[in-house]
Structure formats: C-alpha cells, structure tokens
C-alpha cells in the first residue's frame, strides 16, 4: 500500500509539472500573440510594458521564462496584477479559497447522497415507472446550465416569491463559517443545491448503469444462492462494486470544481471564491490573476485525483497489487 501511494504521488507530481508547462505555453508561447501586452493589460504605458518584459524575462529563452513564471507563482509568490496595480495574486487566491471549498464540499455531499440514492432506486425498480422517471430527471439536470439555473433560483427566491415562501432566504453573498455557521449554511444552501443538481443527475445515471451491469454478474448469482436478501445483494454486493467507478468520477469532478469549474455558480450567487476572482479578472483581461487561478486550480485537480486514487486503492483490493 505504501508503495502504491508513493507511486501515485510521484505520478501526480509529473502531471503537475506537465500541466504547468501546458499553462505556460498557452500564456507565453501562443503564436501571433504578444504576451507582454497581454499581461500588462489594455492601456499599458511603454514603461509598464518594459517592466513586464523584464519581470517575466520575455526577451530570454523559453526555459528561463518558465522558471521565472514558476518563481513568481510559487516561490516568491509576488505575482501582481497590472490592472489593479499592485494587487498580489496569491493572497487573493488564499482569501478566496475557503469560499470555493465551502461551496464545493457542501454541494458534493448533496450530490453524492442524491445521486447515489437516485441510481440505487432506479436500478432497484427497473421496469417500473420510477426508473425512467429518475433517468429523465437525470437528463434534465445534465442539460441545465448551472449559471442559468442559479439565476432562475435567484429570481424565484429573491424576487418573485421572496415576500411569501422564501422570505427566509438571505441576500446573495457569503458569511464565513467561523463567524456564523448558521448564516454560512443559509447563504450557501441554494448555491449548493444549484451546483449539486448537475452532478446528482450525472451520478444517478452512471450509478444506475453500473448497478445494472453488476446485477448481471456471476457474484450476484452466488449471493442469491447464499440466501441473502435482494436488498443486501443490491447494497452490499452490487453497490459496493459499482462505487469504485463513482469514486474515480468523483475525484475528477471534485477536483475540477475546487480548481475553478464552480466559477459560474459563484458568479451568479455573488460568492467571492476563486471562480469569482477569475471572472472579475476575465472582465478586465487581468492576465496575471487568470494565470494564478488557473495554475492553482489545475494543481488542486491533480492533488484531488491523487487522493481519490489512493482511496480507490482502499476500495478495490485488486488495484493495490497491480
């Protein structure tokens, strides 16, 4: 097991390295694009341009430029915005991260519970009306853009029905968990539900397909021959084996949400997370900020994947030895 974890971490570091090169190439080596002008922002003076050129070594060879970028990002951590002059990027990300983490963690709990329950109920009721119903709800959830769903939710809870059913819904925004846990949950409730809807749909559909496959496996026949109840067969045998693929999917999704894929939900609900930071930077074409959030986001994804793979090793005994 220790060897397995070690190997997984080494490969995670390799992937992080590759991703940093990919990000670097996109921002600094895209043909026909002048990175200095891009980084300095729309109305940069020649002095600022020269400063950018020096700071990122744009007149020096690619490997040195790469080194400088990593230096600014991770070692000196002094990457600064040229749009809002002097704003350091890394502290902003650090301040925003708890918001994103709160949003994604809560949503993940909801979508895992709803998605797994939906998948199990659908698989257990194959051939009855509830199975296609759940599957259709799943398709609908997959087909709704989260940022639009968020607006509809806002429209209903903040405007149309705010004076009646939803008078308890606080205005958009974020309250830190440490300052008031109740308000924290209340402010995040609808963002959680909105973000969770898409993934609950995906997970219910994936899990149902996996369960239906598993229920045709020989080991399920053996379990029946043992005289176990259908409920136990479904939950302890079929579901337990199907969860393996759910977990690996969860690693990708959770990582990419932490890494920035939740930005649309953050924008719509006015949550000052990493995604919001990226969004504001996009509006101003504030490249250093975007570079910082993308790089940190990508690293979170890789890290989350590595952690999930280790969990995977605990779930599936076959992986540990392979």
């Amino acid at each position: 097991m220790a060897v397995f974890i070690l190997r997984r971490l080494v490969s995670a570091i390799l992937v992080m390295f590759s991703i940093s090169i990919l990000v670097f190439l996109i921002f600094f080596a895209t043909p026909g694009v002048d990175p200095a002008a891009r980084i300095a922002g729309r109305s940069a003076t020649p002095q600022v341009l020269a400063q950018v050129k020096h700071e990122f070594g744009l007149d020096r060879p690619l490997p040195i430029r790469y080194g400088l970028m990593m230096d600014h990002l991770f070692i000196k951590q002094d990457l600064a915005s040229y749009v809002n002059v002097g704003d350091k990027v890394i502290p902003q990300i650090e301040a925003a991260a708890p918001v994103t983490l709160s949003l994604v963690l809560g949503a993940a709990v909801i979508w895992l519970v709803v998605g797994v329950a939906g998948g199990v109920i659908a698989a257990a009721n194959r051939g009855k009306f509830i199975d296609p119903l759940i599957m259709f709800l799943g398709i609908a959830a997959i087909s709704v853009p989260a940022y639009w769903l968020g607006q509809v939710v806002n429209l209903i809870t903040q405007s149309k029905l705010h004076s009646s059913i939803f008078s308890w819904v606080p205005p958009s925004g974020y309250v830190a968990l440490s300052s008031n846990p109740g308000e924290w949950a209340l402010h995040l409730l609808f963002p959680w539900l909105t973000l969770a809807a898409l993934y609950a749909g995906i997970y219910a559909r994936v899990l149902r397909a996996e369960l239906v496959n598993a229920l045709n496996e020989d080991y399920v026949r053996t379990a029946r021959a043992k005289g176990l109840s259908e409920r136990r067969i479904l939950l302890r045998h079929a579901l337990r084996c199907s969860l393996i693929s759910i977990v690996s999917l969860f690693g990708l999704d959770f990582g990419s949400l932490i890494g920035g894929a939740a930005l649309l939900t953050e924008v719509v609900f006015g949550l000052p997370g990493v995604g919001q930071l990226t969004y504001t930077a996009l509006q101003n074409l504030d490249l250093p900020v975007i570079m910082g959030t993308v790089m940190y986001g990508a690293f979170f994804v890789v890290l989350a994947n590595a952690v999930v793979d280790v969990a995977y090793g605990f779930l599936d005994p076959r992986v540990r030895l392979a």
Partner: peptide
Amino acid sequence: WAFPIYLLAISLSVVL
C-alpha cells in the same frame, strides 16, 4: 483530461 475543461477553455479564449 486532468485539466478542468473550463479552465483550459478560459485560458485559451483569453489568450486568443
């Protein structure tokens, strides 16, 4: 695959 698609698409779009 390991790169969140939105981040990748955003990076490319912003640059281009």
